[in-house]
Each structure stands twice: as structure tokens, then as C-alpha cells.
Design a protein around this nucleic acid. Structure first.
Length: 799
RNA sequence: GGGCGGUUAGCUCAGCUGGGAGAGCAACGGCUUUACACGCCGUAGGUCGCAGGUUCGAGCCCUGCACCGCCCACCA
């Protein structure tokens, strides 16, 4: 064994061995209780980033821990087809080749996407392997697998039959770059510098004008009204009369609506139902027309002056402003900063426009989900996220589920020439209403999240009644980043309750976002990303896992290389501690303690086991990992190994040491699987792997308690001061046990005595304070008395 | 605009229902007695963002303010 632990070859070896030996595999026919986590399916086009690495470390720690505890642990792997992202990648390729998806046609394009995926896609599972993630790789699923497509279709038909899916011409978020609508959740609001234009709309009867303010002058061409607040004195006399829309010269009414803010702008709002969500609502209520002047490609269309057709919105805006100025209708133009929706995928400014889309009414789906979260059947961690999820659910709005893409799940919707709609799981022969056989399938595909919502059960074979579904549903935990709480987590709860009649998981971990060291987001475009694969390369997967878990928190944290470094040191320390014992000669482990130091270390390990379990159960990985570090460095190495070092020649001393080491390795395994397994095989010839070794049982310590306590007190004083305290009877032995025999320091007895005296003074002062004794909680007073007694004891020991 | 979170040692972060300010790293000093210099022993370092308040007692509770960040949002 090399004194320097080198993770590189070791880690690959174990990753391969574990998988080959089938130790990652869950068994649907097992008698053991199940423990299930479905991995958030990464984009099939994606590569491992810091978020995946952190989340992988979290999930694998839980999975490995439960596997050792005797659970039938399933960590379900797989990919998401990521409609928009994947289609965009392939379209970019095509553009380079000087062609387009339209040249290829739908079928050939989809074929092309598959080809691309077979060549370049699906690399992340390999990267998860190199992190040591014990996913059941044999069970890999893809949201575009035939079986999965069937599940998605079933889901859609189910919702349709429930009457929750409907087709409507409504205003949507249109991305002219992706050429599709996107849902509200995929819109990112970004602060933008714009110009706001104040324009006069003359009254049709020549009696003055109303001034409106707009940041999008081109949409003036699609105005159908001007709205004012019903209680606004300034405009009351205009309501019911007509104004003339500039440029197009259209006569439109002045209407009253409470949604108009009197204080904002001029208090008069131009109404453009075709290109603004609020205006759309107002327009619908007032029965106004909904003309469009901006097309799906972002260029000007419609009933507008000929020369404007085909211009961009900006060009048209320039024309309109110039026109206003020349006609004397431009009051002013000011710079204006406000927040504007952008497509989170392409970064393009969202164009609100009216389009015929499929929508899903969410209220009936939301209700059971609300109940599930309120009752605690599904719990988010940290708990503040329960509130976040509930707030969203309470204000839920219809979901635009159709996308104007080709890559994805095509809607199981057919239309006949008479306009009848047929929704069916398989292609129908004829229209169910009129019998027409000339059916045309809807071109659109479903929102990627529509299929992702079925992930916890479609991966297990739903809608078929498979053994897997019976064995592994509902699952236990789901872990993700904050940004997909609504997009995915909450909707999975809705889908699970609706289709399976049960929640998909009990606990949702919303993990930390790891920021770049400078506090910005890690992102490729900013150049702030840190590649976890490089960390693994350099420091090892164990160190990386440790470091990431140490960084995890309930808040966002900055990446710090120090934490990874700490993990590397821990692995190396463990390695060398094992070397020490192995070089002295391997023997059969024997956990029966025969000295106080042996009782002490076994007690320490057991106490840490209990703390560790509590931390893991609370999904507090940073604290879990910190305790492992201290157990290894301080307790096991600095105290225990140093104290037994002179007696390592004795077999029974080593026997206990190996027993203690085995337990230590077990506790560390969920976090640092590779180095622990590597040491494990060196310990003794054994059949089983550490990955499936039983988790340590709680220990009982009859009759040893007092001795252990005393040992700990002695250790504490010695550590603090270097002072060797004098103890009586058996305690003298304890003292020898916990003081490093190689150490000859005596410390400064006077200084230590002074320190203890200070503590005594403090405690006495508090207890002398009548108000404290009278007002403080009795336990607090008692605790203070106890401390006083303890320090008095220490002082006596120092005498 | 609404909501949530943060501000603690040079850095990254802990500090449970209010009762002695912590860890790791970095810094400094000392250790080449063979597990580990990716080590060991030790030292120093903080008006807990600011200002008030409640309390016997506040990093923790309340109010206000200042920055930083996130989520949600139909103010043109």
C-alpha cells in the first residue's frame, strides 16, 4: 500500500466491479422493504454539471445508506428527451449544413434527431458512474422509449376524457427563435432598458385627445380600444366615446376597466388584445376584436400599411414614432427600465401573441396535491418550500401543454375535415362523430414537462401493472434544484395522485445551488462553470462527493475548492490509518473491548453513528459529513490509534482496532464509497462487499458508561491544556488510555487552573443573580448548577 | 410590485426551542521519535451588517434601515 492514496485507478475499478457484480441492481421480487429514488432525468443532450454532481452525491449517499440498512434500494436512472433543447441542437447542425428541418420534413428530421442522439447523446449516465453513483443502470429509461410514449399518450387521453384538456385561441408566450409557445414557467423576467413613448390619440369628434404611454409603439397598429379606470375623474367624460388610432386611423372606443392603474403612465391604457396578456383579458371581457400585427416569425403582418409588412417590430416601431412626430402626436419619448419576459431556453424576448393551443385546466389536479402537502404526506426540505409550493398551487393557472416542435410526444389528437376532434391512444380509422376517414393528426408535440411528470411510475412500466410498479411505487425521496419545484416536483405529485392514486414520494429535497466562487451563477456562457469531472479527475470522486456534501446547505453557497481538498485529506487519512493496522498484521476483528480506550472508541463510533443517522434522515448532509471527518481525524486517529500504537504488536489489540475500523468504514461508505471499499477488501479475505455490508447496529454499553465519561473528561482537559490531570482508581488507567503515550508535554497547570476558575466564577456569578434564578427556566438554572459542579470537579482534579 | 432567504474569523460556512462565539482552510510558531508533511502539536484572529426595542440575559425574538441573492408577478 502506497502511503499516498491515489483514487484514480481504484475508483474506476470499483465502479466497474460493483456494477458487474450486480450490486447496484434492485430486485422487484425482493422481500426487503423498498427504498426508491428516481433520478431527475437529465437532458439527453446534456453533460454533468455541478448541480448534477451535488444531487448525485446526495442521492447516492441516501441510496447506499439504505442499501446497507437492508433496504431493497432502487435508484432509477434515465433521460429526458428535452424537446426544445434537443431540437435546437439538431437544428443548429442542420443550419451549418445549409439546410433546415423544413427541407427535411418531419419524419426525416425526427430520424435525424435519433441519429444525433445515438452518436452524441446520453453521456451523463457514464459520468454519473464515474462519480460512483449506484444507479440501477440496467433499468435506464428514456422519455421517448416506446413504452414511455404509450404512458404519455395514456396520460393525455386520460386528461382529455376528464374534460380538463381543451383547445383555445388564447394569448401565449411565443418564442420566435424556438418557434414555439412556451409555458409561463419557462419565461424568465429580465430587466431591460427600453424607451417609453407618449402618444396622442385624438378624439374622433375632434374634442381634444387622450395621451397613452407604450414601450411597444409597433403594437399601436393592433389597438382596439383605450381603457381608463372607471373612477378616474380626468377621463370620465371620454368613456363611451371614440378615439382615432394613429397610423391606421381606426376608430376605437374608450372603455372603463378596473385593471388600469390610475397612477401609472398617463392613466390611459391602449388595448392590444393580440399582443399583450392584460389587454387580452380586458379585450375578451369587453368583446373586442383581436387583430394581430406581429407574426410567428416576429415580422409585421396583418391589416397595416403595405410598406410595413415584413418589417421587424423595431423597424415598425421606428416608422410609427416618426409618423407620430410628423403628425404632432408624439408628446415625448423617455428611456425606461422595466422587466420583460424572455425565453429561458434561447434568451429571446417573448412575444405575447394569440395562437391556437392545447391547455390543461389545473384546478382539479391541484386540489389533491394541496391536500397531500398540507397534510405532510409530501414534505419539502427545507420546510419553507412547502409554503412556496402551496402558494403556487393555490394560484394555479391553465397550462399551455402544446409545443410547435417536431421532437417530442405528438399529440394523440386527430381532426376531420368537418372540424371534429378525436382523441385516442391509437390512430383512429374514422372520425367518431361523422365517420370521415380523412383524419389529420395535430402537428404539435407536448411540453417536455408533461412527460416528465410521469417519471416516478412510467419508468416502472405504467400503465401496465408490472412487478416493478407494485414493488417500487410510491417512492421515497426526490431531490432537485429550486427552479423546478413547480415545473416538475409539484406536477409529479399531481400526476401521481391522479393516475396512481398515491403520492410519488414522501420527501422532496430542494438542494443548494452551488455558485461560482465569486458568487455569480455557474454558467457556461458566463464562463463561470466548474467541471465536476475535472474535480473527480484531480481529487477523486470520493473527495468530490465529500466536498459537495460539505458545501450543501439550505441556502446558496459559493463553490470552495477547500471542501474538496478536505475530502481528499480525509480519504488519505483513512488510507493511512488502515495501513498502520495492516502493516502490524491483519487479524480477525473482534468488537469485544478489553480496555477503556477500546470501549471509548467503540462508544464514540456508535455515538457518531446515531448522530449521522439523524443528520441523514433530516437530509443535513453538511453536518453528517463534518461528523465523519471529526470521528476519523480526532477520535479514531489522534486519540485511539495513538493510544494503542505501542501495543499494536498484540493481536487482541489489533482485533478490536480492526473491528472499530470496519465500523468506521461502514459509516463513511455512503459518502466515500471507493476508498472505503478498497480498504475493506484489504482487511481480510471476505465474501461480501462493503457496499452491501450491514450498517452497524446500535451498541449497548453496560457498566462502562462512567469510565467512558471519565475518559472523555480527561481527554477534554488534556486536549485543551496539555495538563495531565490526576484521577483516582480506575481513572488512572483511563488517563493513560486517552493521553497520547508518545506525547511528553505537561502543559501549564497554572493556566489551566486559572481558566477553570474563570468558568467557576462565571457560573457562580450567574447563580448569585437573584433575577436569573427567579426568572430563568428551571432547567437553565439546573444546567448552570451542573456546569458549576463539573468545573469544580475539574479544579479538584487539577489540584 | 409581492414573497422568501442571506449579512458571524482573511476565505467558505456552522451555530438546535434566547443562557459560556465554532469548524475547515488560510496565517503564524514548533515538530524529519518509520501510518499519513494530503501529517502532528500549538498560537493568533470576530462591536455576530447598522440603529433602536423586549428580556435577569440577544448572533438567535420584535421594529426600522442598508446592502446581496432568489422566487413569483398582467403596471402599459
Amino acid at each position: 500500500m502506497d502511503p499516498l492514496y491515489k483514487p484514480q485507478g481504484v475508483e474506476q475499478h470499483w465502479q466497474q466491479t460493483w456494477e458487474e457484480e450486480g450490486l447496484y441492481a434492485a430486485d422487484a421480487s425482493s422481500e426487503k422493504p423498498p427504498y426508491v429514488i428516481a433520478v431527475p432525468p437529465p437532458n439527453v443532450t446534456g453533460a454533468l454539471h455541478m448541480g448534477h454532481a451535488l444531487n448525485g452525491s446526495i442521492q447516492d449517499a441516501l441510496i447506499r445508506w439504505h442499501r446497507m440498512r437492508g433496504f431493497n434500494a432502487l435508484w432509477q436512472p434515465g433521460y429526458d428527451h428535452a424537446g426544445i433543447a434537443t431540437q435546437a441542437v439538431v437544428e443548429k447542425e442542420l443550419r451549418k449544413e445549409g439546410t433546415s428541418r423544413f427541407d427535411l420534413g418531419r419524419e426525416a428530421f425526427v430520424e435525424r434527431v435519433w441519429e444525433w442522439l445515438h452518436e452524441y447523446g446520453g453521456v451523463i449516465m457514464g459520468q454519473f458512474r464515474s462519480l460512483g453513483c449506484s444507479l440501477d443502470y440496467e433499468r435506464e429509461r428514456f422519455t421517448m422509449d416506446d413504452a414511455y410514449v404509450r404512458a404519455v399518450t395514456r396520460f393525455f387521453v386520460h386528461l382529455y376524457e376528464r374534460g380538463w384538456l381543451y383547445r383555445d385561441n388564447r394569448i401565449v408566450n411565443w418564442c420566435s427563435d424556438c418557434r414555439t409557445s412556451i409555458s409561463d414557467l419557462e419565461v424568465e423576467h429580465v430587466e431591460v432598458d427600453d424607451a417609453i413613448v407618449y402618444a396622442h390619440y385624438p378624439l374622433a369628434d375632434g374634442d381634444g385627445h387622450i395621451t397613452i404611454a407604450t414601450v411597444r409603439p409597433a403594437t399601436i397598429l393592433a389597438d382596439v380600444a383605450v381603457a381608463v379606470h372607471p373612477d378616474d375623474e380626468r377621463y370620465r367624460r371620454f368613456v363611451g366615446r371614440d378615439v382615432i388610432v394613429p397610423v391606421v386611423g381606426r376608430r376605437v372606443p374608450v372603455i372603463a376597466d378596473e385593471r388600469v392603474e390610475r397612477e401609472f403612465g398617463t392613466g390611459a391604457l391602449k388595448i392590444t388584445p393580440g399582443h399583450d396578456p392584460v389587454d387580452f383579458e380586458i379585450g375578451r371581457e369587453h368583446g373586442l376584436p383581436e387583430p394581430a400585427v406581429i407574426g410567428l416569425d416576429g415580422r409585421m403582418i396583418g391589416d397595416i400599411p403595405e410598406k410595413l409588412i415584413g418589417l421587424t417590430e423595431d423597424e415598425a416601431a421606428d416608422y410609427v414614432v416618426t409618423w407620430l412626430r410628423e403628425e404632432g402626436l408624439l408628446e415625448k419619448r423617455e428611456s425606461y427600465r422595466h422587466s420583460v419576459g424572455h425565453c429561458e431556453r434561447s434568451g429571446t424576448r417573448i412575444q405575447p401573441l394569440i395562437s391556437l393551443q392545447w391547455w390543461c385546466a389545473m384546478d382539479d389536479l391541484a386540489r389533491p396535491a394541496i391536500e397531500a402537502i398540507e397534510s405532510g404526506r409530501v414534505t419539502f426540505h427545507p420546510p419553507v418550500q412547502n409554503r412556496v409550493a402551496l402558494d403556487w398551487l393555490h394560484a394555479i393557472r391553465p397550462w399551455n401543454v402544446s409545443r410547435q416542435l417536431w421532437w417530442g410526444h405528438q399529440l394523440p389528437i386527430w381532426y376531420c375535415p368537418d372540424g371534429h376532434v378525436v382523441c385516442a391512444e391509437t390512430e383512429p380509422d374514422a372520425c367518431t362523430e361523422c365517420g370521415s376517414t380523412e383524419l389529420r393528426r395535430d402537428d404539435d408535440v407536448l411540453d417536455t414537462w408533461f412527460s416528465a411528470d410521469l417519471w416516478p411510475f412510467a419508468t416502472l412500466g405504467w400503465p401496465d401493472e408490472t412487478p416493478e410498479l407494485r414493488a417500487f411505487y410510491p417512492g421515497d425521496v426526490n431531490s432537485t434544484a429550486r427552479e423546478i419545484i413547480f415545473l416538475w416536483e409539484v406536477r409529479m405529485v399531481m400526476a401521481g395522485l391522479e393516475l396512481m392514486g398515491d403520492i410519488p414520494f414522501k420527501d422532496v429535497i430542494i438542494h443548494t445551488t452551488i455558485l461560482a466562487p465569486d458568487g455569480r451563477r455557474m454558467s457556461k456562457s458566463l464562463g463561470t462553470g466548474i467541471d465536476p469531472l475535472e474535480l473527480i479527475d484531480e481529487h477523486g470522486a470520493d473527495a468530490t462527493r465529500y466536498g459537495l456534501l460539505k458545501m450543501s446547505s439550505t441556502q446558496d453557497v459559493r463553490f470552495s475548492a477547500q471542501q474538496i481538498e478536505e475530502g481528499r485529506k480525509l480519504a488519505n487519512k483513512l488510507w493511512n490509518a488502515s495501513r498502520l493496522l495492516l502493516m502490524a498484521g491483519a487479524v480477525e476483528p473482534d468488537a469485544r473491548p478489553s480496555s477503556v480506550e477500546e470501549s471509548w472508541i467503540l462508544a464514540r463510533i456508535d455515538a457518531t453513528r446515531a448522530e449521522l443517522e439523524a443528520d441523514l434522515a433530516a437530509f443535513d448532509f453538511a453536518h453528517a459529513v463534518e461528523k465523519l471527518y471529526h470521528l476519523t481525524f480526532d477520535d479514531f486517529c489522534d486519540w485511539y490509534l495513538e493510544s494503542i500504537k505501542p501495543r499494536l504488536g498484540e493481536e487482541d489489540v489489533r482485533a478490536t482496532a480492526f473491528a472499530a475500523l470496519e465500523r468506521l468504514l461502514k459509516l463513511l461508505h455512503p459518502v466515500m464509497p471507493h476508498v472505503t471499499e478498497e480498504i475493506w477488501t484489504n482487511l481480510a479475505a471476505r465474501e461480501s462487499r462493503l457496499i452491501v455490508a450491514p450498517w452497524p447496529e446500535p451498541q449497548t454499553w453496560e457498566g462502562e458508561f462512567e469510565a467512558i465519561e471519565n475518559a472523555q473528561t480527561a481527554a477534554r482537559i488534556y486536549r485543551r491544556s496539555g495538563v495531565r490531570i490526576r484521577l483516582t482508581d480506575d481513572s488512572a488507567r483511563i488517563f493513560e488510555a486517552v493521553v497520547r503515550p508518545t506525547d511528553d508535554g505537561h502543559g501549564d497547570v497554572d493556566a489551566e487552573r486559572a481558566r477553570v476558575q474563570k468558568e467557576i466564577d462565571r457560573a457562580e456569578r450567574m447563580l448569585a443573580n437573584e433575577k436569573f434564578v427567579a426568572n430563568a427556566a428551571p432547567e437553565a438554572v439546573a444546567a448552570e448548577r451542573e456546569k458549576l459542579a463539573q468545573y469544580v470537579a475539574e479544579r479538584d482534579a487539577l489540584a
